[in-house]
């Protein structure tokens, strides 16, 4: 039993992805998003999630897979890792399935246009591949879906560079 974990299954551009259910607080329908000025493009803004503000990321834009078109099926996965709570907007979220750890294989360097940093592994299913995402990396703003360009560190240096997402 140990080897089996539950994954939330969701879709982007007709590819199926999985996110560890233990890192997902809830799945929400899209509601009105308040834009936050001067933040990275993939940050769509914040929503009121039962009394708390929660930032929303367009996961497609995060991975540079295009821009999400909102439809009736669009869902927001509320991810909770460490102290961080963030909503990930995806095309649709359909299922929760059991995946046996033994069936998870290491991901090739790039799959479905996504770098392996963001991928925990790939699980073969009857109806195709399930790409299991590494959500920690998705939330890490230092990780991008292209070869990292090193920008000059500010001379002050001490600032938490991980936290300011293109605010200037």
């Amino acid at each position: 039993m140990e080897g089996i974990s539950k994954y939330i299954v969701f879709q982007m551009n007709h590819q199926t992805y999985g996110a560890d259910v233990r890192q997902i607080l809830s799945i929400e329908k899209v509601q009105e998003i308040t834009e936050v000025p001067r933040t990275a493009g993939f940050i769509k803004g914040v929503i009121n999630l039962r009394g708390d503000t929660t930032p929303i990321i367009d996961l497609k834009e995060r991975f540079r897979l295009g821009k999400l078109e909102q439809t009736e099926a669009t869902r927001i996965l509320i991810v909770h890792i460490a102290d961080i709570r963030v909503g990930l907007m995806v095309d649709s979220a359909t299922d929760v399935i059991d995946v046996d750890a033994e069936l998870i294989e290491q991901a090739p360097e790039i799959i479905g246009g996504i770098r392996d940093t963001f991928i925990k592994g790939v699980a073969k299913q009857e109806d195709g591949l399930l790409i299991l995402l590494n959500l920690e990396a998705v939330l890490d703003l230092n990780e991008t879906n292209e070869l990292r360009k090193f920008t000059k560190e500010q001379q002050t240096g001490g600032q938490d560079s991980g936290n300011d997402i293109g605010n200037r």
Partner: peptide, 27 residues
Amino acid sequence: LKSLGSYLGDVFAISGATILGDGQVAL
């Protein structure tokens, strides 16, 4: 006053957010 959360960190000229009577978020 609600924090925007550690994910967004410091946003220029925004000190936080609040939730209005109609449920909307205002910065």
